[in-house]
Design a protein around this nucleic acid. Structure first.
Lengths: 213, 213
DNA sequence: AGGTGTGAAGGATTTCACAGCC
DNA sequence: GGCTGTGAAATCCTTCACACCT
């Protein structure tokens, strides 16, 4: 593996976008793609694409470009999605259930293997219409995470319950958290946390829209 | 209004986080907060908070800090959430329905006023369990957006349908789009686009988790 | 010609550090 | 003593531009 000691955050964010673009244009069966072609759709410069990819070694052919399939494989390995990631979800509310039936995760090799909720009313009931998973009580988390070898957790509980859910997940041995609750999570340094606050996204829009008038 | 001619993107992103922190600590009835107190929870430096706020004028008291309530009001006005934003949603699938019943939006003054879907099977059916909104056909969009004075649109359709949905929304006069489809959207410069790709979020996690071992 | 990889230059953002105010 | 607002310095990131490859 390359000496990818430290990668700037903006680069990591773009990596996923490159992969998405590549996968979108793979069906066209063009064997290669240039940094320019990759960059235009994303509103970036061609130099940026080359610099970003150069963090992980050099796999372009001067005069030709990048081999699409090879680059896809390489990017998947870099991002870690060449293998299955087992994920547990805490919070069987509306958002949690929506994520459970979201097809995109499985396509990207993220498999949700268990669902937990604090509400005794929900425990035992099927978490999805297809009844593939039943909601389990929080107490089971440690055992289930261990048994399923899940390494990631998704938090879709109310803000007040988020830190508690995070603590349990961390205790159970999860290595990364995707948090949808509108609050900051504290976690030890060996646990990676990424947050999506849906209201914040809309706020960004309302700010920008107000600016342009 | 202040000469907020141009605000760097990183600053805008943090603005929402400041407001969220402030709202979280408002119930404690502490009258003021220091840049340091605001910064620690978010993992930022105190200087950063002060610099960011300084873009919009100066409302701190040396030796005291910032008046919590005043800062909240000010931030809401800056972000545009001191008024109601009417929002329409396209795509009555799982994610769309989850967003419809997400309480956080209304709390932040974002009101979803209509739901559209291309599937004739879904049209006419209630979009939420509480039956407050019925799914409408895409053809109605222009008229409904006009009638409801909606200015923002949320896209929760499959990737293949996203650009089409965006075009219709733009045509109908919407000024900002929040896109959950895993694809890049093209839009004219007067329309602001913000995207959330759920799989990309998990990919970021798998990358970071792989790094730290 | 068309295209990559990369030092060097340029810009943007963050941190430092301190004068000045409460 | 505590804290803000802000120039100056430092750091981080992007763009330029070109040697080199096919």
């Amino acid at each position: 593996m390359t000496k990818a000691s430290f990668i700037p955050a903006p680069v990591v964010r773009r990596l996923s976008l490159y992969l998405r673009q590549l996968e979108a244009l793979a069906p066209e069966h063009k064997p290669t793609v240039s940094s320019r072609e990759l960059s235009v759709g994303l509103g970036l410069s061609d130099a940026q694409v080359r610099k970003d990819l150069a963090y992980f070694g050099q796999f372009g052919q001067p005069g030709i470009g990048y081999d699409v399939q090879a680059l896809i494989s390489r990017m998947r390995r870099i991002l870690g999605t060449d293998r299955v990631w087992r994920v547990v979800l805490v919070g069987a509310g509306n958002l949690g259930k929506a994520l459970l039936s979201y097809k995109g995760f499985k396509k990207k090799n993220f498999h949700i293997v268990a669902v937990f909720d604090a509400d005794p009313e929900k425990v035992g009931k099927p978490a999805t219409p297809d009844r593939s998973l039943a909601v389990q009580p929080l107490e089971e988390m440690a055992a289930v995470v261990k048994a399923t070898k899940a390494r990631l957790g998704i938090i879709t509980v109310p803000a007040e319950a988020a830190q508690g859910a995070a603590n349990r997940l961390i205790e159970a041995g999860v290595e990364g958290l995707l948090n949808f609750a509108p609050t900051v999570l504290n976690a030890p340094p060996h646990v990676v946390v990424s947050s999506v606050d849906l209201s914040v996204q809309l706020e960004q829009l309302s700010f920008q829209v107000n600016l342009s008038r």
